[in-house]
Structures are given as C-alpha cells and as structure tokens.
Design a protein around this nucleic acid. Structure first.
Lengths: 221, 221
DNA sequence: AATGTGACTGACACCATGTCAGAAACAACG
DNA sequence: CGTTGTTTCTGACATGGTGTCAGTCACATT
C-alpha cells in the first residue's frame, strides 16, 4: 500500500469508509443530515436515499435506526417538544401579570420557531401521511391545548377572562399559532418575527382579554 | 335484442361494459368515485387504482382526464370554491349590520363545510405534496384573505374596527377557520356545528370588534 | 361494408421502499 | 496473534404504485 501519496490516513474528505459508529452516533448523523436537507427543501422531496447521501452510511443502514421516514420525523418532533415547552412557561404557569406574561410567552414561541420553523413545517406536512406520526402530532398538540385551557380556566375563575368554552378556544388559538409559524418560518425567506409576534398577540389578547390594550382608545369613534 | 327479459336497456347494475362515455361523463364518474372514497378514508390511502375501481373504467383511463391524483384534487378544489364564495357574501360584501353579518357569514361557511369537510381535508393534506396543487391552494386562500382584508380596511375607515395590520390578521383568521373546519368535519364523526360556529365567531369578533358582545357585561369582575 | 376518430386498455419500464442473507469491523478470549 | 462472538453495515432482491405507449375497440359517417 502507498503511504502518503494520494490520501491522508483518516481525514479523507468524504470517503470516511472503514469506521463504525456507536448506535447513538449514527442516529445523530442521520438526524442531522435530514435536518440539513429540510433547511433547503421540503418534506415532499425527502427520501431515504437523499438523507443517507448526506451521511457516511449506505441507504439500508437507515432502517436500523428508523422504521420509516415518518419515524425519523417523530424523533425530530420529540426534540422540538423539549425545547418548546419551557419557553412558553411564563403565561402557562401563571407567572407575573397575565397580559404581559402572555406577550412574553408568545415572544418565546416565535423566537424558537425562527430556528426550528423548517422542522415544524415538515412535521405538519408529514403528519397526515402516517397513522403513527399523526397520532404523535395530535398528542403533542393536545398537551399544548390542555396547558392553555388550564390557564384560561384559572384566569376565568379570577375574573380576568370572561367565561366561554376554554377548551375549544385553546385548541383554536394553538392551531392558529402553528399555521402562522409554519407560514412565516417554514421556508426561506423568513417573515419578520416581530410582525408575527404582533399578529399572534393581537388575536390571543383580543380573544381572551378583550380588545388589545394599545388599540383601545385610538380611533374608536 | 331482447326487449324486457333480464335487464332493462341502460340501467344494468354494475357491469356496464361496452359503453363509452363522453369526455365529461367520464370525468364526473372519476371525480364522484374519488369523492366517495374520501368520505370513507384519507388522502394518504387514495390511489389511482382505488379510484378507478369505483368506476366502469380501467386504471390507465384515469390519465386521460387527469395528469395526477393532485390534479384531480385541484378539480375538487375548484368545485368547492364556487360553492363557498357566495356563501360568505353577507359580511364580505358589507351587507347589513357588521357584527350580525359576520355571524351570518360564518354560519354559512360552517354549514357548507359540514357537507364538504372531507374534501377540504383532502385538499389541505395533499397540498404540501405537489407544487401545482400547493400553488392553487395558496391562490384560493389569497383570494379569501384579500376579501377579508378589504372588508376590515373598509370598516376601519368607518371607525367600526380599530386600526391594525389588516392583511396579517385576515390571513391568520382565515387559516384558523380552515383548521377548525378540517378538525371538526374532516372525518367522521363530525363535531357539533354550532360549537364550531361559536368558537369561530368568538375569535373573529374578539379579534376584530373587541370582546364578544354577550360576554361584555357578564362576569367581568 | 369501409373508413376515420376518439375512447379505452394490456403490458411495460421506472422508482422509491423495505428486507435479508451475509460481509466487514471490532472486542474478548485463548 | 488466531479464533470466535457480536454488532454494524451493505449488495442485491422483491414489492407496489406510477405513468406511458402501442395498439384495440366502439361508434359515427359515408
């Protein structure tokens, strides 16, 4: 064998053959490749072959870590959930002044979605195509809905929010958020985050607390 | 030819072989079969073969009338649009008292979606999978968004609605409607239409006009 | 009856998927 | 170091839905 002629020992640029991963390493490598792909393209163009090309592994190796493309998306969904849940805590947990906390929570959601918007979009688009993923997505959203509903009910009992069917409104508002986020940050170029924040805040506060404060006295005939 | 023996002339039950359609007849037959299928199942299970089984034609015949399953969905979208547009006219066109008209328009939308919810659901789920369908769907929604935006702007100038970015709010509210309708009437069993109506009305009126009228004085601490 | 036109179909090539038997790397043990 | 066991990995294959095409079939016109 030749020593230092054409290729250096282990740092060959793309052909890093002859090296095994631990199970976790490989998973991460695949997930990263998929994420990278989704930054540039859509779920509809995602294919097992494409994903594995961005990898040191071959196509069949994919099936040792995921049963499916949908299964891979479920993993991404899990990752997103852990990030998101604590972001929205201010209003959800009832910390500080309700309306200010609401704004703060929405701000957090918008901000993290600027980063993970592509993934959220992929999840939303892929969910209807697979039974299991669909269920995971529904569960994810239900946890969200329940949290919001609980907060609404609590503030209804404090007289801060008028009475109405908290469950349905919670569901409606959350689904609206998903739509806005996907539309705004699901693909390049992104919309202006502060515009999205304003829109969300307007609808949420208008629906829950009444007319948004800053518009109350403006031009109200 | 036998006169009145076993089968009456043209109404043979299922095996209507040896009979050609006009172009329009065949199209309708295919569209009907697809619609029937979507009543019972999802877009993810829809396949060209399945559709054509509900038909007197063979699978390849499909491609004489549609380039694609997505193309077929586009036809269904067109059908839905013509039905829906005049339904929402009361508020859109500014007829009568704004808030009552809003309620009336929403009522109409909900009502027609009770019938065509399955199709709307199929459209929404299929749209991200095909470039052309995606564009058609976006155009459809944009026409809707523009109409709502125009109405908001008109009523802002009349002092009925406070000033805010009408375009973004219109888009948000419309996307919310789609979500609610698909969730409520996209598959069996359907939700209660009046619940859906209340939810939509609550969010719309809260966002546009301020706190919903009937909750204004109730239990507002 | 002969011919032209458009509706229709059987058979095929294509492509992504998911599987499987076995190869290749690595570790443990002698 | 061999040998053996274990885990990771891959080449090659079977499957199923898609879209195409050359050719057939029903019907109208003459």
């Amino acid at each position: 064998m030749s020593e230092t002629t054409s290729k250096s020992s282990a740092s060959s640029p793309a052909r890093a053959r002859s090296h095994r991963h631990s199970a976790e390493e490989a998973r991460r490598e695949i997930l990263d490749s998929a994420t990278r792909f989704l930054q540039e393209s859509d779920f509809r163009n995602l294919t097992v072959g494409e994903v594995m090309e961005g990898t040191t592994l071959s196509r069949p190796a994919f099936y040792q870590y995921f049963t499916d493309l949908h299964d891979l998306i479920i993993s991404l969904l899990r990752d997103v959930e852990t990030v998101m849940h604590q972001i929205a805590s201010p209003w959800i947990e009832g910390e500080g002044k309700p309306i200010a906390a609401l704004r703060e929570s929405i701000r957090g959601v918008v901000e993290t979605c600027v980063q993970h918007g592509h993934i959220v979009r992929a999840i939303v688009e892929a969910a209807p195509l697979d039974e299991r993923l669909e269920q995971e997505w529904q569960s994810f959203m239900r946890r969200w809905d329940d949290a919001v509903e609980a907060r609404i009910v609590a503030q209804q009992q404090d007289g801060l929010i008028p009475f109405f069917n908290a469950q349905r409104i919670a569901k409606a508002l959350n689904s609206l958020d998903v739509n806005l986020v996907v539309a705004a940050f699901g693909r390049h170029p992104h919309d202006d985050p502060s515009d999205v924040l304003e829109t969300m805040y307007h609808v949420w506060s208008g629906t829950l607390y009444g007319r948004p404060p800053h518009a109350l006295t403006a031009k109200n005939r």
